[in-house]
């Protein structure tokens, strides 16, 4: 009885492996590369022939003249897109509170005049460690600092933030957000 099932098991596994493990992914790859080549290859941003990032993957920023993204828990450096990771710290873990406190202090020190409450996404680590977005509030909180350190009018920076704000899909799904890398690249392109 065992042997009777052995042949179909072996052949079924072989055929289904061929079908779902090779034919299926190659077929999807083919369709993807033809229909959506840019997305399928990682939405890469190419400038003068070199890749300077992906529109979907955040980068680390810590100088005052750039907008800062979410804190990132990837190792050994923030926004390591070869090893995605969240912090996995629990809500009552003292290490979480210490990290958040330190982030609050860094933000306050970079912009002492700004006494507004800090939007929560600016001081909490994202799930992927690669979150390309901050909330609109998170961007507005930083407008004053960025404008000052670049010697720009706040209204110009504000207009740029508005330009890079993505709304909810169909007005319903997801949350309004700003892509930090795209915004910072646009900032550099100003002048």
């Amino acid at each position: 009885m065992l042997y009777a099932q052995f042949r179909p098991a072996l052949v079924a596994l072989a055929l289904l492996t061929l079908l779902t493990g090779l034919v299926y992914p190659f077929f999807v790859t083919l369709v993807a590369q033809v229909a959506f080549p840019n997305q399928a290859r990682g939405s890469l941003i190419v400038e003068n022939g070199t890749v300077v990032g992906s529109a979907l993957i955040g980068q680390a920023f810590d100088t005052p003249n750039y907008f800062w993204g979410r804190p990132s828990a990837t190792a050994p450096f923030a926004y390591n897109a070869a090893a995605s990771s969240g912090s996995n710290l629990g809500p009552t873990n003292p290490a979480l509170l210490d990290a958040v406190k330190a982030r609050v202090e860094t933000l306050r020190a970079a912009d002492p005049q700004n006494t507004a409450p800090i939007p929560v996404d600016l001081v909490t680590a994202s799930a992927s460690g690669l979150d390309p977005h901050i909330s609109v509030a998170g961007a507005e909180y930083q407008i004053g600092r960025v404008a000052r350190s670049r010697g720009l009018d706040e209204s110009r920076v504000r207009a740029l933030v508005a330009q890079f704000t993505e709304g909810r899909v169909l007005g319903i799904l997801g949350e309004p957000r700003v892509n930090v890398l795209l915004l910072n690249r646009a900032l550099d392109a100003l002048k």
Binding site: N88, V120, D121, A125, S126, S128, D131, G138, P176, R177
Partner: peptide, 12 residues
């Protein structure tokens, strides 16, 4: 302007 809430370990 923001979703708010416990954003540790969540994506914007």
């Amino acid at each position: 302007l923001q979703g708010g809430g416990n954003m540790e370990g969540k994506e914007v």
